[in-house]
């Protein structure tokens, strides 16, 4: 892939990508119906089928969240009743500060995913652009070390954080900062590998051209490479954000006080205690919890979709 010519530098990648789409659409302004079905129509059928499969349990949750009575199992008639009662209850329960959990989750998710993207990109750049001893073994080890079942290492993590808390109280147990650090321990690994693959698709000739212009490695990385790999950064950011916001085992071991909980732990408590389960409110909380992830996906989608090399290799 390194035989491609250096990239022109007149417009950002995603701009050109959407140009490409527009041109593609313009190229075939009209199609015969038969051809439309063969080339486009069936895609709608497949898309619809998958969407139904993907969303029917979630539609069910949405329905349950709008139903003022009932359980997750007992409300089989979708949208039998519609009321925002559960949402009101969710947000007004002072014993379970949902809004606080929401903020906590966003803070942990955003900080972790930004830092993960940054750390991962740094490492991927080194693996992709530099040659050093231990490079292959290093990359492989990064993938392997993350296969340790963290659920069973949670005791060690707990004791480590207890010790860390003795030195730096703000990083110890029951601290969001500490939790973020634990998550960042996993910043390298699969993410690095994903990025590494994408970094490799950026032609080395770009680096070389910049180097001839007198740019140092740091400048090449921060001003040229990062921009060209924006789509993969978006993907990693999204994956990391999703992974972090739904993580349960470690956070429930480390976080204890009600004000410090994340959505995953807090919501689980709506259904984990036999004597105080409240499925409809749980459903309402789960629906709201999914919104930021969907919003982030929508926002990042143009990066994810705007192909990387599709733009740069024209």
């Amino acid at each position: 892939m390194s035989t491609t010519p250096p990239i022109p530098t007149d417009a950002p990648a995603q701009q050109r990508a959407s140009d490409a789409e527009r041109i593609a659409r313009l190229r075939q302004p009209r199609m015969r119906p038969g051809r439309w079905i063969a080339e486009i129509g069936w895609r709608h059928v497949v898309g619809l089928a998958v969407v139904v499969f993907a969303t029917f349990p979630l539609v069910y949750v949405l329905s349950a969240s709008l139903n003022p009575t009932g359980t997750l199992t007992g409300s089989n008639v979708l949208f039998r009743e519609i009321s925002v009662e559960n949402y009101v209850e969710l947000l007004s329960d002072t014993r379970r500060p949902y809004a606080r959990w929401f903020v906590n989750t966003m803070v942990v998710g955003v900080v972790t995913s930004l830092a993960t993207v940054f750390l991962g990109a740094l490492a991927a750049y080194a693996f992709s652009r530099m040659r050093f001893t231990g490079r292959r073994v290093g990359l492989l080890s990064l993938l392997l070390v993350q296969m340790f079942p963290q659920l069973l290492a949670v005791v060690a993590i707990y004791l480590l954080m207890q010790g860390l808390g003795d030195v730096f109280p703000i990083l110890g147990l029951d601290s969001l900062a500490g939790l973020i650090l634990v998550y960042l321990g996993g910043a390298l690994g699969v993410n690095t590998y994903l990025m590494y693959g994408f970094f490799n698709t950026v032609p080395a000739s770009i680096d070389e051209a910049a180097k001839i212009d007198g740019a140092g490695h740091a400048r090449i990385f921060f001003t040229i490479i990062l921009r060209l790999v924006a789509p993969i950064l978006a993907v990693i950011g999204l994956l990391s954000f999703i992974g972090t916001t739904s993580e349960f085992v470690i956070s429930s071991a480390l976080l204890t006080s009600p004000d410090n909980l994340t959505l995953a732990i807090g919501l689980f408590r709506y259904v984990s205690e036999e004597t105080s389960t409240n499925y409809p409110v749980f459903a309402a909380g789960a629906v709201l919890a999914a919104i930021p992830v969907v919003a982030l996906f929508l926002y990042l989608q143009r990066y994810i979709v705007a192909g990387l090399t599709a733009g740069s290799v024209k």
Binding site: G47, V50, V51, A54, T55, P57, L58, V61, I242, T245, S246, F248, L263, A264, L267, F268, F282, A286, A289, A290, V293, V294, F297
Partner: peptide, 12 residues
């Protein structure tokens, strides 16, 4: 829409 199952916390 297809990404939604992934956006929803898995144990939930």
């Amino acid at each position: 829409l297809a990404i939604l199952p992934y956006a929803f916390p898995s144990f939930l």
